[in-house]
């Protein structure tokens, strides 16, 4: 899979705001297998960019293509196919089912397009230190724990691209590295790309390209 951007600029950007950006208003492609690190200060449109890529918002000029298909023409049904098989995401606001247990949150994603066996959920939870939380309600977990739940959930499906929107904001250094390592291992297993946005450069993320938004 390839994701291409053709002169993409958010409609709400004031004139000149996109000047100097290596992504906005550029023609650029991301190929499966290469890791992209996008660095941007607050307010420069990181979350909007990730939402545009995932197809949650369409308020931009230009085109975003999945394998030469303009995603603005996709309906929810078509997106669901790409989201089940080709593209996974970790939202900055996590978007978990807070009234359900951690296990239910993970299993509902795994069942949709199973890439791993059930036992892998426990193994991943153990690796990120939330094994004891699996049967707990999600809203009883701390934000850091919820961030790790969102990471594990994103890894339950097959994907060519894994989109990360400031995924470690509430994790300590040790947990950040563990989570990053897990995601890199999973991406490598699928020969997939990670597109990670953050405020500053993350040294332990092995990226092929660094782009400034």
């Amino acid at each position: 899979m390839q994701i291409s951007l053709q002169q993409v600029v958010p409609v709400f950007f004031e004139t000149g705001k996109a000047d100097g950006s290596q992504l906005w208003n550029q023609t650029i492609s991301f190929n499966k297998g290469e890791n992209i690190h996008i660095i941007a200060p607050s307010g420069s449109g990181k979350t909007s960019f990730i939402h545009f890529l995932y197809g949650l918002r369409k308020d931009y000029f230009g085109k975003i293509l999945y394998d030469n298909n303009d995603i603005k023409t996709f309906d929810v049904e078509k997106f669901s196919i790409w989201r089940q098989q080709n593209i996974s995401i970790i939202f900055q606001d996590l978007r978990l089912f807070t009234q359900q247990t951690v296990w239910q949150n993970l299993e509902i994603k795994r069942l949709l397009s199973p890439y791993h066996k059930e036992s892998k959920i426990t193994a991943m939870a153990k690796r990120l230190g939330i094994e004891s939380k699996l049967e707990k309600l999600c809203n009883t977990c701390s934000y850091g724990e919820q961030q790790r739940i969102a990471i594990i959930r994103a890894l339950q499906q097959p994907f060519d691209f894994l989109l990360l929107d400031e995924p470690f904001s509430h994790l300590d250094e040790s947990n950040r590295q563990k989570a990053m390592q897990l995601m890199e291992d999973e991406a490598a297993e699928r020969n997939a790309s990670i597109i990670l946005t953050d405020l500053k450069k993350i040294d332990y993320f092995k990226s092929e390209r660094i782009l400034y938004l």
Binding site: L56, F79, S80, R83, I108
Partner: peptide, 15 residues
């Protein structure tokens, strides 16, 4: 909210 999230995660509206 839950249905919206299921759709966001990739559940098909048809299904």
């Amino acid at each position: 909210d839950n249905l919206q999230l299921l759709l966001t995660l990739g559940y098909s509206p048809k299904w």
